[in-house]
Design a protein around this nucleic acid. Structure first.
Length: 205
DNA sequence: TAGGCCATCTGGTCCT
DNA sequence: AGGACCAGATGGCCTA
């Protein structure tokens, strides 16, 4: 069994198989992304019910449901003396990755689903990043949260529609809003000063 | 230290 | 049957 657990190491992908906290490093994100892509492409071969020739992919995969506990959140027990050298992040990550590699059919199926889910969330997050690039923010402002991005985008679209309907020059419309307040306050989770102040940073020319 | 935000895992449901 | 989507649970990180 240990051999199978180390299969990820042998093809040099262990660094990507860190299922714990996502490293914010962009390069790592790309590596993880491409890994997930490759991995999911090959996921057909990962079906727990498939076999290579006459031999099962997981010959030692005995269906003992008690094994399920091992992967449950919070049951992150140390099976191999993790208390030692806890200060090496790479070592810890590799141990964690090895722990989380499934080794019976249900786990393999669940693991494949987890990978698809992470890939799906990555695509959602990349869409959020794209959206963040299209909503007005201050140069010094910290990164918008997802919920704030959505709310600001809604308010932004609303204001742009107002500008279009008014037929006014956008900059003068925003200036007017800065002075008198934004007319449409009904859904103003992002209030007038928030949005129009942001828009004042936009170069309208 | 509490609360906000986020990534991840998980099981259920729907769809192809 | 398998994948996509969704929401709840959980734990980590960060900040006020």
């Amino acid at each position: 069994m240990e051999d199978m657990l180390f299969d990820f190491d042998q093809d040099g992908t262990t660094d990507f198989a860190i299922w714990g906290q996502m490293d914010p490093n962009f390069q790592f994100q790309n590596q993880l992304d491409s890994f997930l892509l490759d991995y999911s492409t090959a996921s057909g071969q990962l079906s727990p019910w498939s076999s290579f020739g006459s031999q099962s992919m997981f010959p030692d995969a005995q269906l003992t449901l008690t094994d399920l506990d091992v992967l449950s959140p919070g049951a992150d027990v140390c099976a191999e003396g993790e208390s030692s050298s806890m200060d090496d992040p790479l070592e810890v990550a590799q141990r964690r990755a090895r722990r989380l590699v499934p080794h019976h059919p249900y786990k393999v199926q669940r693991h494949a689903a987890n990978i698809r889910e992470r890939k799906r969330m990555l695509s959602i997050n990349s869409a959020f990043e794209e959206l963040r690039c299209h909503v007005p923010t201050f140069p010094y402002e910290k990164r918008l949260s997802k919920i704030d991005t959505l709310r600001l985008a809604i308010a932004y679209i609303d204001l742009l529609r107002e500008i279009l309907m008014s037929g006014c020059d956008p900059k003068s419309y925003v200036d007017e809003c800065m002075k008198n307040g934004y007319k449409n306050q009904t859904n103003a989770i992002w209030n007038t000063s928030d949005l129009t102040a942001r828009l004042s940073w936009i170069k309208w020319d």
